[in-house]
Nucleic acid binder design. Structure first.
Lengths: 130, 130
DNA sequence: TACTTGTTATACATATAATAGAACAGATGC
DNA sequence: GCATCTGTTCTATTATATGTATAACAAGTA
């Protein structure tokens, strides 16, 4: 099992699963072309309803993280080609503005934040491919 | 009015208000000791129910961003002394890990991210005080 | 044929978000 | 004193989000 779910968390189950799949791709734990468990299988593994997993897969498909075929099931998009377009960059900036306002007021310096970012980026794989 | 509310947003009203008050403090638009509108006044200004504003103030009070007295009403905590303790740093790291996994996969480099952070930090005031 | 696949539909329970109206005690200004 | 404003609390209702439950269907596989 490549997922660890916190049932007591206030983050919705489907969001936790989605987050871990996307970070999994970035960290190379999941490779483009690799297949994911079926909705029923993954739901059984985690111990939740298959509709919750289906919701995740539908959203991932909608955002082009995965492709779904009757034959091959759900696989990580082999041709990951997501763009950092302007709306995305805007939303990212807005999110960071709020997030780091609190961090700044708690005494986290710019240097610390940049160092943290560097460490996080180092956990991402150099080349995302098969 | 120092708040701009997006009613069509999927971000809850109370969360938008809370976010803008905290970033407002970081950016120097709101200074420690400064008083905020009463729950009824702010609600009337925005055009929402006063219970929603009350929810914001209660949370801000709970997290020590503001202090509330019968006499003075709601004021930004004059002695802002919030700590970046270990649980907070953990949650910040977890949030960033997810956030930048997607950014990374969309082609946003470490250098771009660090530059963005620098720009954001520059919008925060140097010295948070009266 | 039996089984698994993704997909869809309906229903239900619970929690969250937002609104609504009412009331109360403490403080303020006339 | 009296009216007004303050934060606070209570109950209630509506809408939405989340998660579960059961069932069914068409397409592909062994």
């Amino acid at each position: 099992m490549f997922l660890s779910i916190a049932f007591e968390s206030d983050i919705p189950l489907y969001q936790q699963i989605k987050n871990q799949i996307i970070t999994g791709i970035a960290q190379g734990k999941l490779k483009p072309g690799e297949s994911l468990p079926s909705v029923r299988q993954l739901a059984a593994d985690i111990g939740i309803n298959f509709h919750t997993v289906n919701k995740v897969y539908q959203q991932l498909k909608q955002e082009s993280w995965v492709v779904i075929h009757r034959k091959s099931g759900v696989i990580i998009n082999p041709d990951l080609n997501l763009q950092a377009n302007e709306p995305y960059r805007e939303s990212l900036k807005d999110t960071l503005e709020v997030l780091f306002a609190e961090a700044y007021l708690r005494g986290v310096t710019l240097e610390e934040s940049q160092q943290l970012l560097k460490t996080i980026y180092q956990s991402y794989v150099q080349e995302v491919s098969k």
